[in-house]
Simulated scan of single mutants.
Amino acid sequence: MRALPTLALAVLTLIATPAWAILQGSASRDPNGLRRSVVSIESSTGELCSGVIVAPDVVLTAAHCMTDRAAYRVTGLSRAFRQQRFNVAALAIHPTFVPGTTPRTQPGIDLALLKLNRPVGPEFLALDPTQAGRIDVGDGVTIAGFGVLTERARGTARTLRQTNLVSLGPIEVANRVLIVVDRDRLAETAGAGACRGDSGGPILAATQTGYLLYGITSWSSGPLRSRQPSACGGLTAVTPLVEHLGWIASTMRGLSGLNSAWSGN
C-alpha cells in the first residue's frame, strides 16, 4: 500500500488541531494491558493530554501539552482501574519546539519529558523508548489515549481507549511527522484515529511479548472528504521516536540522574 501522493498538500487544507480521544476506539479493560503504561496528564487550567511511562518516574508526552503556565498532574490506573495520581516535579521540552504555533505550522519537535514527584510503583510498566524502530508504509500500529469518544462529546474523556491504525508513511509540512489512519477509510471518510485528549499518547507496535513504543501522537485532522469542519476521524500525525533518541536519552539522564534505567550504565 502506498501513501496518498497528494497527502502533504491535503494536510495543508485540513483543520489540524492538537489531538486532544481515540475516535471509534474501544475502552482498554485488560488489567495487564496498556493501562500499565499509558497515563493522562491534566493541567491546573483544565487541559487534558495523554502520555506514556518511560521510566519509573518519567513520562513522555507532546511538547504542546506543556506550554501553559500551570501545575500538571499525571494520573495512572491501578489494576482495578482506580486513579493513581502523581505531581510533575520537573519537565523538559525539546529545544526546537516553538510555543504558540499550530500543529501543522510547528517547525520543531513536539516532544516533552516529565519527571514525577515519586515513582509510579510496581503496578505500572515503563516502555523503553530506546527500543523504538521505524514504521514503514503499510505497517499496523496501535494508538491509545484518554481523549473523547467523539469530537463533540467532551464528557467522554478520561477513559483509556485504544485502536489499530495503519501507516501511510512520513510527510514534511512544517516538520517531519508520520501519518497513520483507519485501515478501511484511509482518511477519505471519517474513521478511527486520535481526537481531543489524545495528544502525547503512544503509538505502539504489538509483539508476542507486549508492546514496543514507536512514537507520540501530535495532532489529528478531519477526513479528506468531510463536508463539515472537523479535527478528528482523518489523519493522525505521529512524532517518531527513532529520529530523536539522542535527545530522549540525554534528557532522561538529566531528569532521573546517572542511575536512570536508560543511562546505559
Rank of each mutant, 00 (worst) to 15 (best):
L60F: 01
G51M: 12
L212A: 08
L224C: 00
R227W: 11
T75E: 10
F124Q: 05
G193A: 09
G215F: 00
Q84V: 14
V180P: 06
L77N: 02
T251P: 00
T17L: 15
L235A: 04
Y214T: 11
T102F: 13
G140K: 13
A55H: 04
P56K: 10
V137M: 11
V148N: 09
Q83T: 13
E42K: 10
G100Y: 01
A89D: 08
S221I: 08
L213A: 01
A16T: 15
H64E: 12
P107G: 10
R227G: 08
R85Y: 01
Y211V: 07
S226E: 06
C232N: 01
T45W: 04
G222D: 04
T6C: 13
L235G: 07
P18H: 14
Q84I: 12
V98F: 07
E188Q: 12
R152C: 10
G155R: 08
T159A: 09
A112M: 01
N175V: 11
V181N: 03
C195W: 06
M252A: 11
T61C: 09
R196W: 14
Y214N: 15
A89H: 03
V141Y: 01
V137D: 13
A62N: 02
T13F: 09
N265D: 14
P5V: 10
F124V: 00
Q131T: 07
R176W: 12
V39Y: 02
R82C: 06
L12C: 12
S43F: 04
C49F: 05
T189M: 12
W262Y: 09
I22N: 03
L4Q: 13
A63V: 00
S167T: 08
A190K: 14
A237L: 00
I216C: 07
G100F: 02
A63R: 02
A10F: 08
T13R: 15
D128K: 04
E123C: 05
T75L: 05
G201E: 03
F97V: 06
L178C: 03
I53G: 04
I216D: 11
A90L: 07
V54R: 06
L4I: 14
T159C: 05
V98D: 03
Y214P: 03
P122V: 05
V88A: 07
T61K: 06
V54P: 00
N175P: 02
S226Y: 07
L113M: 01
A206W: 05
G222H: 03
P129C: 09
L245E: 07
P170Q: 13
W262K: 07
G193Y: 11
G145V: 04
R161H: 10
